[in-house]
Design a protein around this nucleic acid. Structure first.
Lengths: 342, 342
DNA sequence: ACCGAGTACGAAAGCGCTTCCGAAAGCGCT
DNA sequence: AGCGCTTTCGGAAGCGCTTTCGTACTCGGT
């Protein structure tokens, strides 16, 4: 492992400015107890010499770490990369650094990553991604995180419910409802859901919204085929094959995220099934390519970049007595992948 | 700024294991001078207590920082997010953490980010993204980076030439050549290039390849319209408008990356110009959505994830006498966006 | 049984910073 | 002039770790 180069030390600056180490430290970190005149001189010298404090020493000595840990499922998934973009953006403005790691959609891996971040003593952790409906897993993850918070760490989660932490929550249920309404309004009655991993709360919430819409229109959600596969493109492909085979009367497919919707479209294309003439397809998230797909995708827009910013913003604020919830807006974007039922 | 919680200290583990601090340190870091028996006991106790070393203390005491800094233009650009995915993947396997920051395609911002990483004493820096053809900018960035390397920092760059650093280089010129050959082979003679930011070496290299292909077939590259805009989707749209207005005889458009190609396709769609019947379009990179576009995009595939891994791999190896170059393969992927010239 | 070489471990010195504490100096007041 | 109070600063003690150095002990050779 390479070793970073040596650097200017605070004592060098202090000597050059003709003050003690302690005074120099106070001057640079803006503590009071230093005359304006001396403080200015120290700052001046420090600037001239291009001094930058060693963050390891600073943190060790009881200062706070200035890096934020970000845990995402997978950074090359557009949903997460946009969230990460937002976090990095705001972090940059606040001159914080971002440690990023993958949980790979695996609860135990996620826990490992969080532990590692805590060990790194990062002061802020942002966990993006769905919660897991497995109570066992959630419990142990919750335990680690709440210990972290009790120790003074700041935590914010994106897109998952958390009892203790501040959270940024897309309105998954309302989004699902809007999708359901849209399709039912177009006359669709045989709607199938490509639902992704069953254990994710994101999935269950979005499904609940769709079910509510169906009930609101006198349809029976229980009759609706629900295909659980992976929450990625390939999952959409696989599920579509099953739908075509087992539920031939289906006229509309709701994929619970855009990645799976892309898989659905690609499978339909292979089977020469016209969209939306013979089958309507909707996604969820509105990742940036959704508009460029063939055909362009009707979906629910979530402000991913903002969600990243909001989460960091929450975490930067002092902790409130009760965990804060920030709900994001959502918007139905109607494009070319949906049309009237055949 | 929140403060990370306290933690178990090495001395706690040492006491519990009945050895001195020094011995415990040696045992856990695998140094020799400790009997197998004692070392085992210490490791056992450490595991039981869930001890994790404080990285700040460790680094301060002369150990090496175990985080790698990654500078990308923008993490929510698929090209960079896939590279980042590769870096994070390998870093995870080596239990390194990744600090990620945006340069936002701005040379001075990039330099600022690098400086900040150096100040953070990260031991490894990976810079992804194109070089800048502005010699002034390149010089000052080169100065900072070579100082960093002289001080023992490890550096690897992706997709840019560097005199001193190890580099992972896609074969931009050969890729450009392959695209040119493909279109010329389909009978296209009036080819326009959507080139993106003129100051990037990636752009100039890819253009050089296309030009070479034209010369090889007796065509004059100088006659070819070259549109310089931003290296993003919107740049492709703007450039396409210009092409349609100023170069109506064009039958094929080469976009020098997929993002711009998506812009080109979207502009053509608005103008109801059939692809590939009336206009062929190619991109470069083969980001994962390229296959799902309308129509699916002919492009040059670059192994982005691998490139990220390779860069970190290079940086982890001890420095060689001469900087190493690792050339990546490339592959022409023919899809539905290209066809014979009208 | 004695000596030099080797091995296993502990004591202690930092790494560069923050912060507590105490000394010195300046002030208004009696 | 003498008192207490505040302000400004320096000395020094850590933060938790790695690493050097020194000491006690073991062992093969004679």
């Amino acid at each position: 492992m390479p070793k970073p180069g040596p650097g200017l030390r605070l004592i060098d600056v202090a000597q050059r400015a003709g003050v003690s180490l302690a005074t120099a430290s106070r001057a640079l970190s803006g503590r009071d107890g230093v005359s304006e005149e001396v403080a200015d001189r120290v700052r001046q010298v420090s600037l001239e010499m291009g001094y930058v404090a060693n963050p390891y020493a600073r943190t060790l000595a009881g200062g706070a770490s200035s890096t934020v840990g970000l845990v995402v499922h997978q950074v090359d998934d557009p949903y997460f990369s946009e969230i990460a973009g937002g976090v990095i953006q705001l972090a940059g403005e606040q001159s914080l650094l971002v440690q990023i790691c993958h949980s790979g959609r695996d609860p135990s891996q996620e826990l490992r990553q969080i532990r590692s971040l805590i060990a790194q003593r990062v002061g802020i952790i942002i966990v993006a991604g769905s919660g897991y409906s497995d109570p066992q897993v959630e419990a142990s993850s919750r335990e680690v995180l709440s210990l972290y918070e009790r120790n003074g760490g700041r935590l914010a989660v994106i897109g998952r419910h958390s009892l203790s932490a501040d959270a940024v929550l897309p309105d998954n249920e309302a989004g699902g409802f809007a999708l359901g309404e849209h399709l039912i309004g177009l006359g669709h009655r045989n709607i199938a859901i490509v639902a992704g991993t069953a254990a994710l709360t994101t999935v269950t919430d979005r499904m609940a919204g769709v079910a509510a819409a169906m009930r609101a229109h006198g349809l029976d959600p229980a009759a609706m085929p629900v295909l659980h596969t992976d929450f990625i493109r390939e999952g959409g492909r696989v599920a579509t094959e099953q739908i075509l085979r087992d539920h031939p009367s289906t006229t509309a497919i709701i994929a619970l995220n855009d990645a799976m919707a892309m898989g659905v479209l690609s499978a339909l294309r292979e089977h020469d099934i016209a969209v939306p003439a013979r089958m309507s397809v909707v996604g969820f998230d509105d990742v940036s390519v959704a508009a460029d797909l063939a055909p362009s995708l009707t979906t629910i827009r979530l402000p991913m970049t903002d969600m990243g910013r909001m989460a960091l913003d929450l975490a930067l604020k002092p902790r409130a007595a009760r965990p804060r919830r920030r709900r994001t807006g959502h918007q139905l974007i109607v494009r070319d992948s949906t049309g009237p039922a055949a």
